[in-house]
Computed example of a mutant assay.
Amino acid sequence: MTEKTTTLSFEDAIQKLEVIVERLEEGDVPLEEAIEIYKEGMNLSKLCQDKLKYVEEQLTEMLTEDGRTIPFAVREEE
């Protein structure tokens, strides 16, 4: 991933990914360009997956107390 790609927010990455999908679905993209667009799309997809995984880990950490996972609705306010 490029430096520019890794600094994108999740929302910006999803938006760029949607544009790439639309472009590839048009079907009139030259092969070499389609390959480059596809590569960029895969990088954006990985970026989104990594960001989601990080958030999931943060939520798990917030909901874990003494090594036990505390259901969100039951967790006491601090």
Results as ranks from 00 to 15, higher is better:
residue 10 F to M: 10
residue 62 M to R: 14
residue 28 D to N: 14
residue 44 L to V: 00
residue 35 I to P: 02
residue 16 K to E: 15
residue 17 L to C: 02
residue 35 I to G: 02
residue 73 A to V: 06
residue 60 T to A: 05
residue 50 D to Y: 07
residue 42 M to P: 01
residue 5 T to H: 04
residue 45 S to H: 09
residue 4 K to V: 05
residue 49 Q to K: 08
residue 54 Y to L: 13
residue 11 E to I: 01
residue 15 Q to F: 09
residue 13 A to C: 05
residue 52 L to A: 08
residue 23 R to M: 05
residue 61 E to A: 14
residue 31 L to K: 14
residue 9 S to L: 05
residue 53 K to Y: 11
residue 2 T to Q: 06
residue 8 L to V: 00
residue 5 T to R: 04
residue 10 F to H: 15
residue 5 T to V: 14
residue 7 T to Q: 14
residue 25 E to R: 09
residue 2 T to A: 04
residue 26 E to H: 09
residue 73 A to C: 03
residue 27 G to R: 07
residue 42 M to W: 05
residue 48 C to T: 13
residue 74 V to N: 10
residue 43 N to P: 00
residue 25 E to Q: 11
residue 56 E to G: 03
residue 40 E to L: 11
residue 30 P to F: 07
residue 25 E to Y: 02
residue 6 T to L: 14
residue 46 K to W: 06
residue 8 L to C: 02
residue 69 T to R: 14
residue 19 V to I: 14
residue 59 L to P: 00
residue 66 D to R: 09
residue 36 E to F: 04
residue 75 R to S: 07
residue 6 T to E: 15
residue 28 D to S: 10
residue 38 Y to L: 05
residue 29 V to Q: 11
residue 53 K to Q: 12
residue 72 F to I: 15
residue 13 A to W: 12
residue 77 E to T: 03
residue 69 T to C: 03
residue 8 L to M: 10
residue 73 A to R: 13
residue 49 Q to N: 08
residue 13 A to K: 10
residue 69 T to F: 13
residue 49 Q to M: 04
residue 53 K to C: 02
residue 46 K to P: 00
residue 10 F to I: 09
residue 27 G to S: 06
residue 37 I to N: 04
residue 18 E to K: 15
residue 3 E to H: 02
residue 60 T to Y: 10
residue 4 K to S: 12
residue 17 L to I: 00
residue 32 E to V: 11
residue 29 V to A: 05
residue 58 Q to R: 14
residue 7 T to R: 13
residue 51 K to G: 01
residue 68 R to F: 08
residue 60 T to F: 09
residue 66 D to M: 03
residue 21 V to H: 12
residue 40 E to C: 01
residue 58 Q to E: 15
residue 66 D to L: 03
residue 47 L to I: 01
residue 42 M to A: 12
residue 21 V to T: 13
residue 15 Q to I: 05
residue 70 I to K: 11
residue 19 V to F: 10
residue 12 D to Y: 03
residue 22 E to W: 05
residue 14 I to G: 00
residue 24 L to N: 08
residue 21 V to L: 11
residue 38 Y to Q: 15
residue 56 E to V: 00
residue 39 K to Y: 10
residue 46 K to Y: 10
residue 40 E to I: 02
residue 41 G to H: 08
residue 36 E to G: 00
residue 16 K to P: 03
residue 57 E to C: 07
residue 8 L to Q: 02
residue 30 P to Q: 11
residue 40 E to V: 01
residue 63 L to V: 00
residue 12 D to E: 15
residue 3 E to T: 08
residue 68 R to L: 09
residue 30 P to M: 07
residue 32 E to A: 13
residue 5 T to D: 11
residue 25 E to V: 00
residue 41 G to T: 03
residue 60 T to R: 13
residue 41 G to S: 04
residue 31 L to V: 12
residue 72 F to Y: 09
residue 64 T to N: 06
residue 20 I to H: 11
residue 62 M to H: 12
residue 52 L to V: 11
residue 67 G to N: 11
residue 54 Y to T: 12
residue 11 E to T: 01
residue 40 E to H: 04
residue 12 D to P: 01
residue 29 V to G: 04
residue 2 T to C: 01
residue 59 L to Y: 08
residue 8 L to N: 02
residue 52 L to I: 12
residue 57 E to D: 15
residue 36 E to V: 06
residue 18 E to V: 07
residue 46 K to I: 09
residue 50 D to I: 05
residue 1 M to N: 04
